[in-house]
Design a protein around this nucleic acid. Structure first.
Length: 556
RNA sequence: UGCCCGAUAGUAUAAUGGUAGUACGACAGAUUUUGGUUCUGUUUGUCUUGGUUCGAAUCCAGGUCGGGCAACCA
C-alpha cells in the first residue's frame, strides 16, 4: 500500500509523460524502443543511462526494446565490440526482444534510395568532399547547388546502380538528398545519403561497396522495426527534420525521435574519443581499467548493476545539459554494497602489537559477524593471538584531542576481540615506532564483556601468525579537476597522478583465503573491495571499489 | 553574430496558473564493538527586465548566459 502510494507520488520524466500521452490518446497501442550502439568501442556510463532509459521505459509500459547495432561504417566497426556490448547490456540486467543490425536493412535502404531518386529527391554528385563542404556555405550564409543536381532521374538511377556495382573508387561519387541548400539548418543542405567504401564489413563482408550515412539509415531502421519512441541525445535535435523528411517522402511507418541530455560526471571525461586516447596513450591499462567509467571498467572495479541502475534512475532525464557529481555515483554503490558486502579485516600498513599478558603460543577463535546490516548474518571465526598487526595510522605518540585510537596509555577495542591498553612504545635507532607493547583486559571479550570499560575507538587488526599477504589496489578519481574537458590545454594534463596506489604487502585475515570473484567485501574502516582478475594461485589481488565515508579524515 | 535547444539551493531533479518540495553534498547533534550504517536537525534556490492575471518558477515579449549545428562519423 505504501509502496503503491510512493509510486503514484513519484513524478514522471518528460519522456514518460510523452509515452503516457501517446498511449492515452491511442497514437500507439504499445511501446517499442531501441538501443542503437555503434559497434566501434566500449559502452560507458553514459550508454548505461541510455540503456536504462530505453529498456526502463519499455518495461514500465509493457513494451519491448530492440538491440540494434548501427553498423553503417565498415571501417570502424568490429564483431569484437558487438560481443562486449551485448555482454555489458546483459550484465546491467536487461534483455532485448530482438537483435538487429542496420546492415540487415542495406537492401531495403537501397530500395528507399531508388524511390527517392525516382521522385526527383536524390541525385548523384561527383564533387569531392571539399567541394561539397565549400558549396554548403556557412550557418550565416546560404549554400549553392552545383550542376550535378540537375542530372536526370534516369542518369541518377544508372549512376547509383554503378556505385553499388563497385565501378567507382572511394570518394568519387556520393548520393545526396535534394532538399534545400539555403536552409538555416545545415543538415538540410542536400545531405549525403550514400558514400562509396571499398572496405570489408563485419557482417555483410564484401557484398556492398556503398554504405548509407547515419541520417539515411537510422530513421528508416526505426521505421522498419516500427519503433514508436526513438530516444537519442540532444546533439541529434537538428537531425530530426531530416529524420521526419525521409519518413514522410518514403511514406513509411512514422517513428518519432525524442532527445535528452547526455550524462556528464565530475572528475571524468565521457566522449569515446577521449576515453580512447587514455587507452592509447597508456594512461590506463585498457578499456577495462578499473579507473575507466566504461561499463567493463566499473564492473572490474566492483560496481554492481544494481548500483548503476539506481544511479541512472536518480540522475533524471531532462534536455538541459548537466554535470552530475561523482559523489552521487559513490553514494549509490556504497548504499548497495553496505547491504551485501561481507565484512573482513585487512591491515594495509602494519604496526606490530604484542599483547604482553597474553600467553605465548595460544590462539583463540573469535566470532565476528559477516554483515551487521543483516539481522540473520552468518559468523566467521577470526584467530586472536599474542602478536597482532594494526594500522600504522591508528597509533599516534602525541595524539590531538578526540583521537580515539592507540596512543601511549590509551585504550581501544579490537573489533570482535578485546580491549587493549598501550603500555609501551618501541622504537628503532632512528626513532621510528616499530612495535607497541600492550596489555589486554581478559574480561572485555566481545559478546562477554564484564569489564564495564567504555572505549571510544574500535580498530581492525589481524593476527601475525595467520595473516595472508595480499596486494591491494587503491583506486581514486582519474582526474584532479571537476571538468577536465573544460580546462585550458589538454584534458590529459589533469589526470590525477594518484589515481592508482598499490599496496604490495597488505595483511588479510585468513577468511579471505577463499575469497570469491563474485563476492563483495568491506574491509573494515577501509572501504569496499573485490577480487581482481589478476589474482593468481599464489597472490590475492583486491581492487578498492570505493572508500567508506570518512567523517574523521574530513575534520583533520 | 544565422538557426536550434536550454536556464529552479553547491549538484541534480519536482512543482504542468494557486503553500517552491525531494535526493546527493556540506554542517551540527544522537546512536554505534567499523570515526561506517541508522536517526534527527540546519544551511542555501526560481538568470534578468517588462507584460498578462486576483494570483506567475509556470503564459507572452525583450535581454543575458550556457550548449549544439557548417564529417563521404554516429
Amino acid at each position: 500500500m505504501t509502496e503503491l502510494k510512493k509510486e503514484e507520488e513519484k513524478s514522471l520524466n518528460f519522456l514518460e509523460e510523452i509515452v503516457e500521452e501517446d498511449l492515452k490518446s491511442g497514437k500507439y497501442s504499445s511501446v517499442l524502443t531501441r538501443f542503437p550502439p555503434e559497434p566501434n568501442g566500449y559502452l560507458h556510463i553514459g550508454h548505461a543511462k541510455s540503456i536504462c532509459l530505453n529498456f526502463g521505459l519499455a518495461n514500465k509500459y509493457g513494451g519491448k526494446t530492440n538491440l540494434r547495432f548501427d553498423d553503417t561504417n565498415p571501417v570502424t566497426e568490429e564483431t569484437a565490440f558487438v560481443e562486449s556490448i551485448k555482454a555489458d547490456i546483459q550484465w546491467l540486467g536487461f534483455q532485448w526482444a530482438n537483435e538487429f543490425y542496420a546492415s540487415d536493412y542495406f537492401e531495403q535502404l537501397y530500395e528507399y534510395a531508388v524511390t527517392l531518386i525516382k521522385k526527383g529527391l536524390a541525385y548523384v554528385d561527383d564533387s569531392t568532399s571539399e567541394e561539397i563542404a565549400a558549396q554548403k556555405g556557412a550557418p550565416t550564409e546560404p549554400g549553392k547547388r552545383n550542376q550535378y543536381a540537375d542530372r536526370s532521374i534516369g542518369e541518377n538511377l544508372h549512376l547509383f546502380a554503378e556505385m553499388r556495382a563497385g565501378k567507382y573508387k572511394d570518394g568519387e561519387k556520393v548520393l545526396r538528398a535534394k532538399l534545400d541548400m539555403t536552409s538555416p539548418n545545415m543538415h538540410l543542405r542536400d545531405p549525403v545519403m550514400y558514400r562509396i567504401r571499398h572496405a570489408h564489413h563485419h557482417r555483410t563482408g564484401d557484398q556492398w561497396r556503398i554504405f548509407p550515412m547515419y541520417d539515411f539509415a537510422h530513421g528508416q531502421s526505426d521505421s522498419i522495426e516500427k519503433i514508436t519512441h526513438s530516444i537519442c541525445t540532444v546533439e541529434y535535435i537538428p537531425h530530426r527534420p531530416l529524420y521526419d523528411w525521409f519518413i514522410k517522402e518514403l511514406g513509411i511507418y512514422p517513428s518519432h525521435q525524442y532527445e535528452f541530455a547526455r550524462l556528464n560526471l565530475t572528475y571524468n571525461v565521457m566522449s569515446k574519443r577521449k576515453l580512447k586516447q587514455l587507452v592509447e596513450d597508456k594512461h590506463v591499462t585498457g578499456w577495462e581499467d578499473p579507473r575507466m567509467i566504461t561499463v567493463s571498467g566499473l564492473r572490474r572495479r566492483g560496481y554492481t548493476p544494481e548500483a548503476i541502475r539506481d544511479f541512472c534512475e536518480r540522475v533524471g532525464v531532462v534536455k538541459r545539459e548537466s554535470l552530475i557529481e561523482m559523489s552521487l555515483l559513490e553514494f549509490c554503490i556504497r548504499e548497495h554494497l553496505n547491504k551485501v558486502a561481507l565484512r573482513r579485516m585487512v591491515v594495509f600498513d602494519p604496526l606490530k602489537v604484542v599483547i604482553t599478558n597474553y600467553p605465548e603460543g595460544q590462539t583463540e577463535m573469535l566470532n565476528s559477524e559477516d554483515n551487521p546490516e543483516d539481522p540473520d548474518t552468518s559468523q566467521r571465526q577470526v584467530p586472536f593471538s599474542r602478536e597482532l598487526y594494526v594500522e600504522q595510522e591508528d597509533f599516534m605518540e602525541n595524539p590531538p584531542k578526540k583521537f580515539f585510537r592507540l596512543a601511549p596509555g590509551q585504550m581501544v577495542r579490537l573489533k570482535s576481540a578485546y580491549i587493549i591498553k598501550c603500555d609501551e612504545v618501541v622504537k628503532d635507532d632512528k626513532g621510528h615506532v616499530t612495535e607497541l607493547r600492550c596489555s589486554y583486559i581478559p574480561e572485555s571479550r566481545s559478546g562477554a564483556d564484564t569489564s564495564g570499560l567504555k572505549v571510544q575507538g574500535t580498530l581492525h587488526w589481524v593476527s601475525v601468525a595467520t595473516a595472508i599477504g595480499c596486494e591491494v589496489r587503491l583506486y581514486d578519481r582519474l582526474f584532479r579537476v571537476e571538468d577536465p574537458s573544460n580546462e585550458d590545454g589538454d584534458f590529459k594534463d589533469y589526470i590525477n597522478p594518484a589515481s592508482l596506489v598499490v599496496v604490495n604487502h597488505a595483511f588479510a585475515e585468513p577468511a579471505l583465503k577463499t575469497a570469491q570473484f563474485e563476492e563483495r567485501y568491506q574491509f573494515l574502516r577501509k572501504g569496499y573491495f573485490c577480487l581482481d582478475r589478476d589474482t593468481s594461485e599464489d597472490k590475492l589481488i583486491f581492487n578498492r571499489t570505493v572508500t567508506l565515508k570518512d567523517g574523521w579524515a574530513r575534520k583533520v
